[in-house]
Simulated scan of single mutants.
Amino acid sequence: MTPRPGRRPSPPLVTDSGADRRPPLAGPPPPGTPTPAVVRRLVAAGATATPVWRNERGGLTYRVQETAPAGTGTTGFLKWAPHGSGLDLAAEAARLAWARPHAAVPEVLARGEDADGTWLRTAALTGTSAVDARWRRDPARAAAGVGAGLRALHDALPVAGCPFTWSLEDRVAAARARLAAGDGPAAWAPEHAALGPAEVLARLADPPPVDPVVCQGDACTPNALLGDDGAATGHVDLGRLGVADRWADLAVAAWSFTWNHGPGYEHLVVAAYGVTPDPRRNAFYRLLWDVS
């Protein structure tokens, strides 16, 4: 996998069915990926740890199966972030603890830090990722589950009293900083590649009105869990959870679904969410995601 600058929707797991040929930013860890010390300690204590994901900043996720005398054990996940990656697992733990009384998100079991990086252990939720092979074979049902599940999350999390924000102002400031540092079209999605920095800033200076909800902050398809019937069972990766416009999540959720399942299903995500398509908000928040 070849990481490229810029944060985009979840990387395409299918790259041969459309015009988008960008290299994936994340995916299963390649062979030879070094194992963090905290994972080695778990294995030494008798647990099994299976690597399942590597993100574009070098963070790793492992499925952990605890051993037990009866031959069964609890299953959970361990996320690890190298020092200097910019991944704030302490912030994610705080957001999970706040959201858990309201919605199906992972329970925090433990977190810590060592010489290599920081780590976060959570309990497993029921369901499989919406990019699982079974949902790649049934994308229409998966699209409905992703859209309805995102709406249920937004409806469940209370805006009043939420201590976290994913504010437009902060994200636009981040975009300005990236542009000032030299980020540009080579790092952006094809639909934005023809824009120069001045045009990007002009578009970001004219935001649509905000319809506030508590957003997941990373509503990409892999982070939605679905049950056997296609209904949402939970959400993972809430490190940027905070109050923002609902389309900040929804635009990226539908975009990511296309990257992972191919074209033709975005409208099903939006329809299942239960709102009228909003081209202006959709375009604005995809651009903001791409450049910030």
Rank of each mutant, 00 (worst) to 15 (best):
L204I: 08
W166K: 13
S167N: 07
L225E: 07
A175D: 07
E199L: 09
T233Q: 06
V213R: 06
D170H: 14
R171Q: 09
V146G: 09
T221F: 02
A175C: 11
R171W: 00
A198R: 13
E169T: 15
A224L: 12
R171C: 05
P212H: 03
L241T: 15
Q216V: 14
D229R: 10
A177S: 12
C220R: 13
P158H: 08
V210N: 01
D132T: 09
P163H: 11
T165Y: 01
L201W: 00
A244E: 10
A143D: 08
R171F: 01
P209C: 04
H235Q: 14
L153C: 07
R176P: 07
G182T: 08
D218Q: 04
R178P: 02
A181K: 06
L150A: 05
A142G: 15
G196K: 09
L168V: 03
D183T: 10
N223R: 04
G149I: 07
R240E: 14
R176G: 11
R151Y: 04
G230M: 10
R141G: 15
L168H: 12
R134T: 12
A144Q: 11
P208L: 04
L153R: 06
D229T: 13
G234Y: 02
A174Y: 07
A152I: 02
A152Q: 11
E191H: 12
E199Q: 14
G149E: 06
P207F: 01
E191Q: 15
H235M: 13
P208M: 03
A175W: 02
P190V: 10
P207R: 03
P207C: 00
R240A: 14
D211S: 08
A231R: 15
A143S: 05
D228S: 13
A232W: 14
L153V: 08
L204V: 07
L153T: 08
E199I: 08
V146N: 10
P209N: 04
C220T: 15
D155G: 00
F164R: 04
A219M: 10
W135Y: 10
R178A: 12
E169I: 09
A175I: 04
E191K: 11
A193N: 10
E191V: 13
R240K: 12
A232C: 14
A194N: 10
A173I: 09
A205P: 06
L168C: 06
C215W: 00
L168G: 05
V236W: 01
R134N: 03
V214W: 02
R136G: 15
A186T: 14
R176I: 03
A194S: 15
A180F: 06
A156D: 03
G196F: 07
A193L: 10
D211P: 04
G161L: 05
F164D: 02
P208D: 07
G149S: 06
V159A: 01
L157D: 00
A156Y: 00
P139D: 11
P222D: 09
W188I: 05
A160V: 11
E191P: 09
A177I: 08
H154Y: 00
L204A: 09
A224G: 11
V214R: 04
A231T: 15
A140T: 14
A156G: 00
G217L: 01
G242T: 09
R134Y: 00
G242P: 02
